[in-house]
């Protein structure tokens, strides 16, 4: 496989290897925090912070770590950044932190993060790992934004707390509840499959 250009390294996370729609990784936070757009954004940014810094650290110390203890070291690195993100939110955004509850600490078991360290950062340069982490985070935020926008608009008639649908609209409460999360994500995954299929046919 020829080495990818920097641009491709970034954009692969948005579509071809989108962590949620294509790789089906990190489903738990995706489903749990997308009941409101603001929660989706906060979660996306917290995950981005953890992913980017873990990737930089792991790719810069990869040669020092013996193979046998690499997973344990990665976990400690990831957990350190997750704790930082969690404490930061609790200190400066207490309301969001309360809303997200255990899902911020749970970033530590988000498969996207450990997966990227194992599959990418442990084999690539710091620069490339940074671009890869940036792309994957962008893909993750994109997916969270799409899902939370659909759920908040249909489920509450609002976007970021502002009324967007008129009073004629009776909110579909079910969209904010767990079933709405599962069903919306199921349909979105089917849609990305259809689009991917169309793109392939055109080639």
């Amino acid at each position: 496989m020829p080495p990818r250009s920097i641009g491709e390294e970034f954009t692969k996370g948005l579509w071809h290897e989108n962590p949620i729609f294509r790789q089906l990784l990190g489903m738990c936070p995706t489903l749990a925090v997308t009941n409101a757009v603001i929660n989706g954004i906060a979660m996306g940014l917290a995950t981005t912070f953890v992913l980017i810094f873990s990737s930089i650290v792991v790719s810069s110390i990869k040669k020092l770590i013996p193979n046998q203890v690499r997973i344990a070291s990665y976990i400690v690195v990831i957990a350190t950044f997750v704790t930082m993100a969690d404490r930061f939110l609790a200190a400066f955004f207490p309301l969001i932190s309360k809303d997200l509850g255990p899902y911020v600490p749970l970033i530590v078991v988000n498969c996207i993060i450990l997966g990227r360290q194992e599959a990418f950062s442990s084999k690539n340069s710091v620069g490339r790992s940074f671009i890869d982490a940036l792309g994957m985070s962008a893909g993750f935020i994109l997916a969270l934004l799409i899902l939370s926008s659909i759920r908040e608009i249909l489920g509450a008639g609002t976007f970021l707390g502002h009324q967007v649908l008129g009073s004629w609209f009776e909110p579909w409460v079910i969209m904010i509840l767990p079933p709405g999360a599962f069903i919306t994500l199921g349909i979105l995954i089917a849609l990305t499959f259809v689009i991917e299929h169309k793109i392939k046919q055109r080639r």
Partner: peptide, 24 residues
């Protein structure tokens, strides 16, 4: 390697912990 990773993360975390504790 494991000890130093642990020590560095422990030092970082206690700094963050102390800095944010009062605020929380």
């Amino acid at each position: 390697v494991l000890t130093s990773v642990g020590l560095i993360s422990g030092a970082l975390l206690s700094t963050v912990g102390i800095l944010t504790k009062e605020r929380i």
